[in-house]
Simulated assay, not measured.
Amino acid sequence: MIEKRTYKTYSDEFKKEAVALVTEQGYSVAEAAQSLGVRTNLLYKWKDKLESQAKGIVLDPDERAELKKLRAENKRLKVEKEILKKASALLAQDILLDLNSWKKRPKKGITPEELELQGMAKRLFKDSRQSLGSRELAKALQKNGFPISREKTRRLMKTLGLVVTQRRAYKVTTKRNLTHRVADNLIKMDFNPTRINQVWAGDITYLKTPQGWLYLSIVMDLYSRRIIGWALSERMTVELVMKSLQQAYPRAGFGKYQSG
């Protein structure tokens, strides 16, 4: 009885990380395929498919072959142009030979386990919004089952080009002038009005965003408990409060706000 031939399947994440070895880390397709134990033509298919998906196009086999040929030709022309800029025609051939030898140098092998580690490191770093340093990234990787030291994590971050993005820290920009008069308390702690637009309340808070700290000013109608005006600014100023009031007036049915 002839046994049915089985084929090894690979996850989409594995295919993505395998292609990243070529597109992000300088491996040739043959070197990456050999390190991971997959066929070279299979890795080429994964690479072409991901590139096509990124561009939102799908090519037929003839178009794919023509595109591959054009890319190779374009790459060759770029190399020749760069060589001609740096040397005479006599030296260009020697430089091209040296360049080809450099391109064919053996890459350091990478195992499927190391590829999985790289994929996890990139996902954790992205989820942190590029804020994890080597110490915290090492801890996060260890929690996910990867026994790795901080020193190895530092080298891994360098290999993957993971650079921490420093965010602007919160800083107090406004201080109360104690000589200013405090406004009269007209509500007298009665926060349950009997009709809409009878009593409004306002507040200012600050929010941490990818762009840094921002101040949020809001205006609420205490009867409906609805936010009828809001505004954002990098500074806590009178203008910030006025913008939230200017938005509240027409939303409450009073028309455009008129100062004074």
Rank of each mutant, 00 (worst) to 15 (best):
K8Y: 03
T9G: 11
T9I: 09
S11I: 05
K16Q: 10
A18K: 03
A20Q: 06
T23P: 02
E24K: 14
Q25S: 09
G26C: 06
S28W: 03
A33M: 02
L36E: 00
V38H: 02
Y44E: 04
Y44M: 04
W46G: 00
K49Y: 00
L50M: 14
E51K: 12
S52F: 03
Q53G: 01
A54G: 13
G56A: 00
I57A: 00
V58Q: 13
D62Q: 14
D62H: 12
A65I: 13
K68Q: 15
A72D: 10
E73P: 02
K75S: 09
K78R: 12
K78A: 14
E80D: 09
K81R: 12
E82H: 05
L84C: 10
A87Y: 11
A87S: 12
A89E: 15
A92I: 07
D98M: 13
S101T: 08
W102E: 11
R105A: 11
P106K: 15
P106R: 14
K107T: 03
P112W: 10
L115P: 03
L117W: 08
L117C: 07
G119K: 08
K122Y: 03
R123K: 15
L124W: 07
K126N: 09
D127Q: 15
R129M: 11
Q130Y: 12
L132N: 07
L132P: 06
G133Q: 00
E136N: 15
A140S: 15
S149R: 04
R150L: 01
E151S: 14
E151I: 10
L156C: 03
L160Y: 05
R168A: 08
R168S: 06
Y170E: 00
K171E: 10
K171C: 05
V172T: 12
T173N: 08
T173L: 12
K175A: 05
R176T: 07
N177W: 03
L178V: 06
A183R: 04
A183V: 09
D190T: 02
F191T: 07
F191N: 08
F191E: 07
F191K: 05
N192K: 13
T194N: 10
R195H: 11
R195V: 03
W200A: 05
W200M: 05
G202D: 00
G202Q: 04
T205A: 01
T209P: 07
G212M: 07
S217R: 03
S217Y: 01
I218N: 01
L222M: 08
L222F: 07
R225T: 04
R226S: 10
G229S: 06
A231R: 04
V238N: 03
V238F: 13
E239N: 10
L240T: 08
M242L: 13
L245H: 03
L245M: 13
Q247R: 13
P250M: 08
A252T: 06
A252L: 05
F254M: 10
G255R: 06
K256Y: 06
Q258D: 06
